[in-house]
């Protein structure tokens, strides 16, 4: 461990910097410089944190205000007292609770389908030997680059012909297909690194390929499947374009489009709008508090491999 690192990690001991790369400076001056740089680094990170966090805090604050506070006082003022009834009103008036459960249903169904189909595909692509596998993998991966809008009109027409316009099944099928590329991408590395020996042993014991998939591969890949499930859930929960295009009646709308309608009806009621936005954010926020490491792993898994 070099002294630079030691000096960096203990900025109080200014003299620790004597033997660092900043050789030409007097030791005390170098120590002061280190401390200033260190301070600037924390200041920089804190400014970024405030920029990322403050709009969310402000959303929370105005979700607890009534209109006299919104229109009469500074937007920076704290709600006094907090109007928790905004949340009750948001949940009970309008159809927010309906949209919420629709989101739960569509998100859940699509996540289950995507994880099952994605893991089967990854199993075939990484553990089985066949000629076209690289080509099929490339095809699935390129799916990440395809703009949704380049598929929207034909999908609309197809669902129209199938009678699935304004039916949640159109969303569930579409989410499953469009999330397969990212699901396979996250699973890929994990599946590739599974040891062959486990499978060989199972084959020796006379297991069929299905038994291997169900009893060996699936149990050993549960962690990565959980990661893909939560990443899929975030995407589906927040999806907007497909709902906006395929679903027209209130009884099937999910939260994103539902909120959009709600806001249109209650434009001037900031408190109720804020509460609705918070309600849509809360499930993912709670999941993030509980599973942040898994979520972070899922978000970085694909891009890191380049």
């Amino acid at each position: 461990m070099s002294t630079t690192k030691a000096a960096l990690s203990s900025p109080i001991k200014g003299t620790g910097a004597t033997a660092t790369g900043v050789g030409r400076m007097r030791p005390a001056a170098a120590g002061t410089l280190k401390r200033v740089v260190r301070g600037l680094m924390y200041a920089f990170l804190s400014v970024v944190a405030v920029f990322q966090l403050y709009p969310l805090v402000w959303l929370f604050l105005f979700s607890l205000k009534d209109n006299t506070e919104i229109f009469g006082k500074s937007p920076f003022a704290l709600p006094a007292p907090p109007k928790w009834e905004n949340y009750v009103a948001a949940w009970t008036t309008g159809k927010v609770s309906q949209y919420f459960w629709n989101s739960v249903l569509v998100t859940g169904a699509a996540v289950v389908l995507t994880v099952i189909i994605g893991s089967m595909a990854t199993f075939a692509l990484t553990r089985m030997r066949w000629r076209m596998s690289n080509w099929v993998l490339g095809l699935i991966m390129l799916g990440l680059m395809i703009p949704v809008h380049s598929t929207l009109i034909p999908l609309f027409r197809m669902y129209m012909a199938l009678g699935l316009i304004d039916h949640p099944l159109s969303l569930i099928i579409t989410y499953t297909a469009f999330n397969l590329p990212v699901t396979v991408m996250i699973c890929l590395g994990f599946y590739q690194s599974l040891p062959r020996e486990l499978e060989e042993a199972a084959v020796m014991d006379g297991a069929s390929i299905h038994q291997i998939y169900l009893r060996v591969t699936l149990p050993t890949t549960t962690p990565v499947l959980a990661t893909t499930a939560i990443i899929n859930a975030i995407y589906n929960w927040n999806e907007f374009v497909f709902v906006n295009t395929f679903i027209s009646s209130d009884k099937y709308k999910t939260l994103t489009v539902g909120i959009q309608n709600f806001v249109g009806q209650y434009t001037t009621n900031w408190g109720a709008i804020g509460a609705t936005l918070m309600l849509s954010f809360l499930p993912l926020f709670v999941a993030y508090l509980l599973l942040s490491d898994r979520i972070i792993e899922g978000m970085t898994a694909g891009a890191i491999k380049g």
Partner: peptide, 23 residues
Amino acid sequence: FRKVYVLPLLLSTVAIAQLWSRV
């Protein structure tokens, strides 16, 4: 810090649009 930076990503784009229209 890392966990705070990610928070906006959890908000739906519709919610972000509504929030920033007010900002």
